[in-house]
Design a protein around this nucleic acid. Structure first.
Lengths: 260, 260
DNA sequence: AGCCTATAATGACGAAAAGTCACAAAATGA
DNA sequence: TCATTTTGTGACTTTTCGTCATTATAGGCT
C-alpha cells in the first residue's frame, strides 16, 4: 500500500476524456516505465540511472523511451511529480488523525519523515528536479505539472494551519501569513530529514542518534509559534508513536523490517 | 575578500613540513585547479562540470588532472571541503559580533544566508557530496577531511550555545544536548536556504517574497528554545541589518550589486 | 658537462551513455 | 487488399569518464 507507484494514477487529477485504445496503451506503458525508472533511481541514484538501463529493463527500445520522455532530466521531474502526489496522499491520511490541531500537524511530520525514509532517493529527487540544469532540459509542461503538485501539497498543509486558527490553538502574528507558517514547518522538516538521511557520517548527527530527533525540532518550531498545547504540557512523543502505530502502521512495520 | 578561494589554504590546518620545490609547485597547482573547478561548477552546475573542461581551462592535460583528483566526484568533495572552510571563516567573523548571545546567533544565520546566496552551487555541493554515489567514487581520505571540516564548524557553533548557557540566556532541557540545539538550528537554516534558493518557482515561496524570511524561521526556532531575549522583546530585524551592514558589509554590497 | 633514474605530463584510446534518425513494422481505414 | 499514418527500432554520432603506454623533465651522481 505504501509503496510508491501503487497509487500512480489512481488519483484522478487529470480528467480523462474518451481516449482511444492506443492512447490507453501508451498511458499504461508510461506508468510502467515510471515504475521501472523509479526502481532504478531508488537502487542506484540519479547518477546510476541511465536511459539504456530503462530501455533494457523495460524491454522497449531507446527510441520508444524517448517518445515518452524528452530527456533523462524529464524522467526525474516526472518521478518527482509522482513523489509529490504520493506525499499528498500521506498528508491526507495524516489529516484524518483524531486529535487536536497540533496532534494533527505532528501526524503530518510523521508522514513526511516516513516518506523520507521509505523513499530517500525520491525525497531528494524533489530537490534535484528543481536545480537549473534539470529544469532547463525538461519540458515546460512537466515543470508546470510539478508546480501544481507542489501547490496541492501546500493547500493541504494550509488546512492544518487554518484548523488551528479556527480552534484558537494558534494565533497568526499580525504581519505573518499562513504561507510563512507553512514555510517554517517545511523548512525545518525538509532540513531535518535531508540532514538525517544524507549527513549520516556527520559526528554531530551521529551523537544525537535518536529516532525522535525530527520531533524535537518540530516541537521547537511549534512551541516557537506558540501552537497550543505546548510541548511542555503534552507528550508529543506519545502522539508520534500513536500516529506511527495507527494510520501508518504498515509503513512503520515495513521500515522496522528492513531496518531503516 | 568574500570570494571563495581567496582563503583557500591561507588557513593552516595541515602542518606543512619542509616540502621540496616540486611538491610546492604541485600544491600550488592543486589550489589553482580547485579555483577553476569551482568557477566551472558555479557557472554550469555539477552536471555541466567535466574533467575535460577543467583540463582545457587549466591548460593541463587530462592525465595531470587525474593525478590531482581520483574522479570527478573527488573534485566535488574537495570543493565542498573548501566551502566548509570558507563557512568556518564566516562563522568566526559572526562570533565577533558585539551583542548578546542571541544577537550573535542571528549573526551566525546571517553568515549562512549570505554564503548560500554568494555561492548557491557550493552550498548545494556540500549536500551533493554526501550522497552515496559521490562518497563511493571519492577517496576515503577526502571524505575524512570533509568530516573534519564539518566537525570544526560544529565546534564553532557549539561556542554560541555554550556562551548563551553561560550567560543564562538559554537553559538546556534536561534530556537535550548542545548537539540537539545545533541540529535544530542547522536544520531550519539549511532547509530555509535550500528551499529559498532552489524552490523559487514554488507559489508558496513566491508569495512570501520577504528578504527576512530566514530570520522569521530562525526567530521561531530560537523562541521555541526560549532563547532570551525573545523576538517579542527585541527587534531582530534591526540586528540582522546591522550584521549585514557591519561585519558582512562587503558581501552584502556585492550581493546587492549583482542583484541576488 | 654528460649521463642516469625516478617522477611527472601527455593525449590517444576504450568504454559507457545521451540523444538522433532513417528505416521497419504495425495499426488504421477505405 | 492496399495506401497512409502512426509507432517502434537499434545502429550511429557525440560527449565524457577514466586509463595507460609513451614521452618529457628534473635532480642527483660521476
Amino acid at each position: 500500500m505504501f509503496k510508491f507507484g501503487s497509487e500512480i494514477n489512481d488519483n484522478d487529477d487529470e480528467v480523462i476524456p474518451n481516449r482511444s485504445k492506443k492512447q490507453m496503451a501508451i498511458a499504461e506503458r508510461h506508468r510502467e516505465l515510471l515504475l521501472i525508472a523509479k526502481d532504478i533511481i531508488s537502487a542506484e541514484g540519479f547518477h546510476g540511472f541511465t536511459m539504456d538501463k530503462l530501455a533494457s529493463a523495460s524491454g522497449y527500445s531507446k527510441g520508444t523511451i524517448y517518445n515518452h520522455f524528452a530527456s533523462k532530466e524529464d524522467v526525474i521531474v516526472t518521478i518527482s511529480c509522482e513523489a509529490l502526489k504520493t506525499l499528498a496522499q500521506m498528508y491526507k491520511k495524516a489529516y484524518q488523525f483524531e486529535g487536536g490541531s497540533r496532534d494533527k500537524v505532528v501526524a503530518l511530520h510523521v508522514a513526511y519523515r516516513i516518506f523520507s525514509r521509505l523513499e530517500p532517493v525520491l525525497f531528494m529527487c524533489v530537490l534535484t528536479s528543481k536545480t537549473p540544469w534539470v529544469v532547463e532540459k525538461s519540458t515546460a509542461e512537466n515543470i508546470e505539472k510539478q508546480n501544481l503538485a507542489e501547490e496541492k501539497l501546500v493547500e493541504i498543509a494550509d488546512k492544518f494551519i487554518l484548523d488551528a486558527i479556527d480552534g484558537e490553538d494558534l494565533t497568526l502574528a499580525a504581519t505573518a501569513s499562513t504561507d510563512a507558517y507553512i514555510f517554517a514547518n517545511w523548512a525545518v522538516a525538509f532540513g531535518s530529514n535531508a540532514l538525517l538521511n544524507n549527513a549520516t557520517n556527520s559526528q554531530c548527527i551521529q551523537r544525537i542518534e535518536d529516532p525522535y530527533s525530527v520531533l524535537y525540532n518540530v516541537n521547537i518550531v511549534l512551541d516557537g509559534m506558540n501552537w497550543q498545547p505546548l510541548s511542555s504540557r503534552r507528550d508529543y512523543k506519545k502522539v508520534w508513536r500513536e500516529v506511527e502505530q495507527t494510520i501508518f502502521a504498515d509503513e512503520t512495520a515495513y521500515l522496522a523490517q528492513i531496518g531503516r
